[in-house]
């Protein structure tokens, strides 16, 4: 009976969901919240898969451009500002590594415009365009933003990565 109680305690502790604050961000990096990434030995496959992506700045984070923070369940990839981040490939690298990505966080500096009824944020190097939610970004149309924090949800990533536009939300 005592053993049963111990097991119940262990499992009930296990299923309690964790809450996170939004991570702080620097330019030219993308942070990805990943559930269950609690040991970097187990996450070696994720790190290896991500380090093979061609839009990473491999001079950072131990020469592979990838940093896994098991305390925050966050993966940070240093990105090459001259190249487009392919979110779909990042997702696949993490999924094949045995984990599930939840959200992507990044800073974008660029101009917000409205075109064909869509609000678009194109970064200064014109490599990446994000479609922002109308109700969040309407008041920013026409402005130039510096290090605007945007969040890309998993459901907003086109698995085929057709075109260059990724749907994103603004950080609260």
């Amino acid at each position: 009976m005592n053993l049963l109680l111990i097991f119940i305690s262990i499992f009930s502790n296990f299923v309690m969901a964790s809450e996170y604050d939004e991570p702080s961000l620097f330019s030219n990096e993308v942070k990805i919240r990943v559930s269950g990434i609690v040991c970097s030995f187990c996450a070696y496959g994720v790190e290896r898969n991500l380090s093979e992506l061609d839009f990473l700045d491999k001079t950072k984070f131990g020469d592979d451009g990838v940093l896994i923070d098991i305390g925050e369940q966050l993966i940070t990839i240093a990105t090459d500002s001259s190249k487009k981040v392919n979110f779909s490939k990042v997702c696949q690298a993490i999924l094949k590594g045995g984990y599930e990505p939840q959200k992507f966080y990044l800073n974008v500096s660029g101009k917000i415009i409205e075109r064909d009824g869509k609000i678009l944020l194109t970064d200064n190097t014109s490599t990446q365009t994000f479609q922002l939610h109308e109700n969040e970004a309407q008041k920013l149309v026409g402005s130039t933003v510096n290090n605007l924090k945007v969040i890309v949800g998993l459901s907003e990533i086109d698995p085929l990565e057709e075109g260059n536009i990724v749907r994103a939300s603004l950080s609260k």
Binding site: F14, V15, A17, S18, Y20, S35, G36, V38, Q73
Partner: peptide
């Protein structure tokens, strides 16, 4: 069968 929940995996 893996389940990942926040800061835990089992």
């Amino acid at each position: 069968n893996y389940t990942n929940l926040g800061s835990k995996t089992w």
